[in-house]
Design a protein around this nucleic acid. Structure first.
Length: 423
DNA sequence: TCTGGGGTCCTAGGACCC
DNA sequence: TCTGGGGTCCTAGGACCC
């Protein structure tokens, strides 16, 4: 194997082990909320502990021993382990933990990409003269995160982002450093099941099985044209991944390239009265409008999607003549789209998404704008400011007062990192 | 007995234009 | 009376990620 000093590129992938669960644990221990370290007992983060509904987001290692899987329902998980501890997710806390880790990582390279709240790529190329060999540095980083922040991470090292990620994800957890260089692909990467490959999910795996492909190695050695025929461009991409081919750069902060802002909410009971759906849409519009304005953008497309009780989805979108960032506009369009889409069947989930973002610096008004649109817009900014200072529910729309809804529904964490589905 | 919430990207089909 | 080919834009739906 080559010596590290001969490597053209050295990429780290840092992945927090059971991120949400570790962070909840540390937080609750440090605040004296509990004396139990939830990492050491069967526990999960996800859903609502009171209603016992929702899905498992992260599980502890003891919970894993009960066969509990990420993504399964709390109901199912509780059947496997009746005394399972359920913790409600708190995204603001996770963002703080993530930021603290970023601060440490910034000492090791200027080229860092936050891939999600708990995953980071770090370009270590050219840093060896200054900091030493990659393995020693990676181990040092793990040690520091553990000592200073109290949680463990896995670190994968390779010559590109894909292999670095595969190394930290699939070669053993927790608290480990793994190398996966191109010349080790055959031995360490190819024996893994095809499901472990990045971008092979629920729909693609069965298609590959039909072609007789069960391991990453089998995909890598299949004729690319054969794969291309059945899986199109997605097939070409995963074939390249299986062969360790991937060449993207570690880009700084991906939230600046944000493509859209959206929110959705699952309705606890099947709502069938149209007025209640309107309240939800208003509350969602408030949060989207607020985040849009905070990001300095306006949207030129508004879309809504509806999920019915049978889990089927319907979606409807509209391109706007003039981009907007006012809550009122988003809400009105969402209502029209909803009315044109809803079949009248009971609803499970409502979602609004805005896209086609343009900076709000050169705002254009048209004759067709609402009469007092500028006033409405200014009011939005005033309300945003009050909510920022006094809390989300300090100002609430009259129509929402008598409902159980929050004034603002949906994530409002500032600068929440955007996941890009492609590396 | 049920299935979160935040995203991105790709594809197919229709409308429209030259 | 019959109707090409290429391009762009828009919409709906599906697949994937953490």
């Amino acid at each position: 194997m080559k010596h590290w000093s001969e490597r053209e590129k050295i990429i780290f992938h840092i992945d927090c082990n059971s991120a949400y669960l570790s962070w909840e644990s540390i937080y609750r221990l440090s605040k004296g909320i509990t004396t139990i370290d939830y990492r050491t007992v069967p526990a999960i983060v996800g859903g609502d502990p009171k209603t016992r509904r929702g899905i498992v987001l992260t599980k502890s290692i003891p919970a894993k021993k009960y066969g509990i899987q990420t993504g399964e329902t709390l109901h199912k998980a509780l059947q496997k382990c009746p005394h399972l501890v359920i913790l409600k997710p708190n995204y603001g806390l996770y963002m703080m933990c993530s930021n603290a880790m970023m601060e440490i990582l910034e000492e090791y390279s200027p080229k860092i990409q936050r891939f999600s709240v708990d995953e980071v790529f770090l370009d270590f190329t050219g840093m060896t003269d200054l900091l030493g060999d990659p393995i020693t540095v990676a181990n040092k980083i793990r040690e520091r995160i553990n000592d200073e922040l109290g949680f463990t991470v896995n670190i994968g090292i390779s010559s590109n982002k894909l292999l670095a990620k595969m190394a930290s994800d699939n070669l053993g957890k927790p608290n480990k450093t793994h190398e996966l260089w191109p010349e080790q692909i055959e031995e360490k990467f190819w024996p893994l099941p095809i499901e472990d490959l990045f971008m092979v999910g629920r729909a693609t795996a069965p298609k590959l099985h039909k072609l007789g492909i069960r391991t990453i190695g089998q995909l890598a050695q299949t004729d690319i044209n054969h794969i291309k025929y059945t899986l199109k461009s997605h097939g070409v991409m995963i074939w390249q991944y299986a062969n360790g081919i991937e060449d993207s750069t570690v880009r700084k902060s991906n939230y600046v390239t944000m493509k859209g802002v959206g929110n959705g909410t699952t309705i606890a009971y099947d709502i069938d009265r149209i007025k209640e759906a309107y309240y939800y849409l208003l509350s969602l519009s408030e949060s989207i409008g607020m985040r849009l304005r905070a990001s300095g953008n306006m949207c030129s497309v508004v879309s809504i999607s509806i999920r019915y009780s049978d889990m089927s989805n319907k979606q409807h979108q509209r391109k706007l003549f003039t981009p907007t960032d006012t809550t009122d506009n988003i809400y009105r369009i969402a209502l029209e789209l909803f009315d044109a889409t809803w079949s009248g069947e009971p609803l499970r989930q409502l979602r609004i998404r805005t896209s086609g973002l343009v900076p709000n610096t050169h705002r254009q008004t048209t004759l067709f704008d609402r009469v007092n649109s500028e006033k409405v817009r200014n009011l939005d900014f005033v309300v945003d400011d009050i909510r920022k200072r006094f809390g989300k529910n300090s100002i609430i729309r009259g129509t929402l007062v008598d409902t159980e809804l929050s004034a603002v529904t949906g994530g409002v964490v500032d600068e929440y990192p955007m996941m890009t589905s492609l590396i």
